Amino acid sequence: MRFFTTNRIRNHMKILTKGEYYGSQNSESSFNGVLLSQYTYLTDRTDWHYHENPYFMYVLSGNMKDCNTKTSTQCPAGSLMFNNWQEPHYGSKHSDRASGFHLEFEKDWLAKNGIVIDLWEGSQLIQNPKLHFLFANIYREFVMSDKLSPVTVEVLLLQVCDALSHVKQSNANENPEWVANLKEILHYDTSELSLHYLSKELNVHPVHLSRAASKYLSMGLGEYIRQQKLKKAFPLLLDLSHSLTEIAYQTGFSDQSHFNRVFKRYFGTNPKAYRKMMMKSF
């Protein structure tokens, strides 16, 4: 019945071709078969539609909801949503102002780089912080747009595809029950995420937790936690109502100095300079 409903919806909806989205386009750049664009979302709800190419939507500001034939997904600022090609869906806006950064792959680019389009079946909310970190860097290159941006974006895109394949492979494995609980804590818990705290919450010995986590997270536990904090910090930096000190504490850093050091390690600049540069696009 769902198959029939999906095809009936698709037969009576609009297909959005390359670079076409609902909303008002602020800027757009093309990098060898990959299209980057930033949009302000204007309507409370779009029509049912699907896209010619697979794409990612990174919510820069506001609250969105993505709805397809199977589920509805809340997408507040900082959310990273993947929508596959020919996936019927519609979007709705749940705040006065909302905007997003889109990254769209042409099928030729995927084929040229040996990436199977079925790598990403369906639509899904991406939680892995490594992918958020990579998208933050891609967005930075999109805003900067200098002569080195094309090659930098291409390298980052290949890292995105590699990270996605590892995430999918990890999700397909038979994981212990505590792994799902670990990911839940790392994604949503605002407590100080120490090894002792996680061990107590999960009832897993800290030595086993430390050794096994990298297998299921595709990186070491400490690295995952640092990237998770940066994932939470990125949308807050785009909201000038939050001071840098507030952002440091809200994202779990011990103080602003610690926040500055970790941020600079990953982005090559301090949060203040990064915020100033990013705000050029708003």
Rank of each mutant, 00 (worst) to 15 (best):
G222D: 12
L240H: 06
L240D: 08
A213Q: 04
S214A: 14
S241F: 02
R211K: 15
H205S: 11
D239P: 07
L240P: 01
G222F: 09
Q250H: 12
N203L: 14
K200W: 04
K229W: 01
L209S: 08
A213F: 04
V207Q: 10
S218H: 10
E201G: 02
Q256E: 06
V207F: 10
Q256S: 13
D255I: 10
I247M: 06
Q250N: 14
E246T: 15
S210D: 06
L217H: 10
A248K: 00
E201S: 14
S243W: 00
M219F: 00
G220K: 15
P235V: 04
Y216G: 09
P235S: 10
D255R: 02
K229P: 02
S214K: 15
V204Q: 03
L217W: 03
G220M: 02
H258Q: 11
S199E: 02
Q256R: 15
G220E: 04
H208Y: 13
K229N: 07
A213T: 02
A212N: 13
R226Q: 15
Y216L: 05
L230T: 01
K232E: 06
G220P: 06
R211F: 09
L244Y: 06
Y249V: 15
S218Q: 12
I225V: 11
F259V: 06
G252P: 14
I225F: 05
L238K: 04
K229G: 03
Y224V: 13
Q256H: 12
Q256T: 14
L240M: 05
Y216N: 03
P206S: 07
L238A: 05
D239L: 00
F234L: 10
S218M: 13
H242K: 12
F259L: 01
F259W: 02
